[in-house]
Each structure stands twice: as structure tokens, then as C-alpha cells.
């Protein structure tokens, strides 16, 4: 686990009252790589996400993020919006959270809020319509247009986000996260509810984001075809603890992982594997 990691989760624990959702979890996510966090339902994956993105304050442990220029930030000390703003961590949600009454384009404009606030001189320059603001606004529209084009929604730019089909909403949410120009993109089950064709398109999109933007990606996913196809590194959780990690191929053959998914003990899993192959 050496190498250049952008995110390092160190002995993270999260307790809700008496329930331990995440227990002493440590893993790293490497720069410009796709790291997948998998595990059965209730394993604590989304809780980890919420800790990383600041929606929960971890009970203990440290979450460090290192930017390309070597600037290191302790995420567990920041508020949620500051993590997105300063640490440049963007996220999507398991149950899509777009702004349904705003158009696809507006959704992507809201994502550029902080950059645009500066450009509008905290609103005052914008109010008088200063030329510098107009240029910045046009640039923001251009960036949004580029992303709409990449996710194939350019012709629906002016439609309300809430009117888009499910698969389009998923892609729009990713594009919205990318419009914040993040260093780390956290995706919570991006392939959930997608059909095979849409899943394939999603894989392609994520690979192109890694290749073109150089964004590091951390994703939670249940769709193993997506995980196996695109991830560079897989971390497996069950009952709040890490039970395995490694390359997709390595994980696929790990009896502990299979046992966790099948809910059986290890010997049985090995038997299943052997009989299956």
C-alpha cells in the first residue's frame, strides 16, 4: 500500500449510540486511480463515505487528504461544505440528490457556486453586470455545456432535472460533482438501478474521467461487473470492518469475501467456489 495515495483513512470508527457502524477501518485510495469500496448491505460503506465527506463526524480515527501539490488536509476536522470547498472532495448520493426543480444546466451552474461567487465579487460586481463577471459566467456555462455533452445530455440542458430518466439523473449527478473540479470524486452506488447498457456507459464515463481529468475516484458499488471492470483497487467491508483488499482479481478469489456476501462461513464458501468452478 505504498505509493502515492490521495486519501488515507486511518483507524476510522463511527458509533451511533451503542451501534458500531465502522470499526477501526484503515485503507488508502491512490492518486488517479479508481478505488472501490464493496461489501454486503449494512457493512458500513455509506457511513465511511459520510465520514469522508463530513456529513458525519467520526467517533475516532483520522482521514487525510493530500493534494497533488503535497498540501495535506485533515478531513475529520472540517465541516461538510468546507470539505467540498477546500479539500475538493465531491460526492454523489445513493438516492440521487439533484435539484429537481432546476434545469440540468442550472444544476451544473450551482456546482460552480464558489468559483462564481468569487467572480461575481460576492454578488456586487454581478449586480452591476461588470464585464469580468460576464466573462466568468460564460466560462461557467461553457464548462457546464462540456459536461452535458460528455454525459450525452446536451439536448436536455434546459429540461428540469426532475423530469430526466433515472439513468440520466445518475449521470447528471456525476457531472454536477465534476463541475466542482474535485481532486477526489466519491460515488455512492453510481450503477444502482441502471440497465446493462447504461452500466457500461457509466464505466466508460468513469474511466474517461480518470484518464482526462486525472481525478481520483472512490466508489461504493454493488454491481460487480462495474467494480471488476474499472477499479484498480478494491476494499471489502463487512460489519464495519475491512475483511480484504487488493486488486479486483485478488478479491474475486478471496473466500472471506465470498463468505461475507453469501452469509456463510469460510469453509462453506470454499466449497461453493470449488463446486462452481
Amino acid at each position: 500500500m505504498s505509493g502515492d495515495s490521495i486519501l488515507s483513512v486511518d483507524r476510522l470508527s463511527m458509533r451511533f449510540g451503542g451501534i458500531v457502524a465502522v470499526n477501526d477501518l484503515s485503507f488508502n485510495a491512490e492518486r488517479r486511480k479508481i478505488t472501490a469500496l464493496i461489501g454486503p448491505n449494512g457493512a458500513g460503506k455509506t457511513t465511511v463515505f459520510n465520514c469522508i465527506t463530513g456529513f458525519y463526524k467520526p467517533s475516532s480515527g483520522a482521514i487525510g487528504l493530500t493534494h497533488d501539490d503535497g498540501h495535506a488536509i485533515r478531513l475529520e476536522r472540517l465541516d461538510d461544505f468546507r470539505i467540498a470547498k477546500l479539500a475538493k472532495v465531491a460526492r454523489t448520493f445513493q438516492n440521487i440528490r439533484l435539484f429537481p426543480g432546476m434545469t440540468a444546466l442550472e444544476n451544473l451552474m450551482v456546482a460552480q457556486h464558489n468559483a462564481l461567487m468569487r467572480a461575481s465579487g460576492l454578488t456586487f460586481l454581478g449586480l452591476i453586470g461588470a464585464p469580468s463577471w460576464r466573462t466568468a459566467e460564460q466560462a461557467a456555462i461553457d464548462l457546464a455545456t462540456t459536461w452535458l455533452d460528455r454525459i450525452g445530455l446536451l439536448d436536455r440542458a434546459d429540461d428540469a432535472a426532475g423530469n430526466l430518466p433515472y439513468g440520466d439523473q445518475r449521470r447528471l449527478e456525476i457531472a454536477r460533482a465534476m463541475c466542482t473540479e474535485p481532486a477526489l470524486l466519491c460515488l455512492d452506488e453510481p450503477a444502482a438501478g441502471l440497465n446493462a447498457r447504461e452500466s457500461a456507459a457509466l464505466s466508460e464515463l468513469l474511466l474517461s474521467i480518470r484518464a482526462d481529468q486525472g481525478t481520483s475516484i472512490l466508489l461504493i458499488e454493488h454491481d460487480m461487473s462495474v467494480v471488476m471492470e474499472i477499479s484498480d483497487h478494491v476494499v471489502v467491508m463487512d460489519h464495519g470492518v475491512k475483511i480484504a483488499e487488493g486488486t479486483p482479481k485478488h478479491i474475486r478469489d478471496d473466500p472471506k469475501v465470498i463468505a461475507a456476501y453469501l452469509g456463510t462461513d469460510e469453509e462453506e464458501a470454499i466449497a461453493v467456489m470449488e463446486s462452481g468452478t
Binding site: T53, F55, D80, F81, R82, I83, A84, K85, A90, R91, F93, R97, L98, F99, P100, G101, M102, E106, M109, V110, A111, Q112, H113, N114, L116, M117, S120, T123, G126, R176, A177, T180
Partner: peptide, 20 residues
């Protein structure tokens, strides 16, 4: 941006925070 942020806030506050 401020006005758009107001409307976004009305639509979904959690998503707003996730966008910084």
C-alpha cells in the same frame, strides 16, 4: 450565484453542502 444557491437550498440542502 447567490440567487441560484438560494433556490438550490430550497431544492436540497444536503446536496448544496456536498457541493461546497
Amino acid at each position: 450565484p447567490i440567487g441560484r444557491a438560494w433556490e438550490a437550498l430550497r431544492e436540497d440542502e444536503v446536496a448544496c453542502r456536498a457541493l461546497g
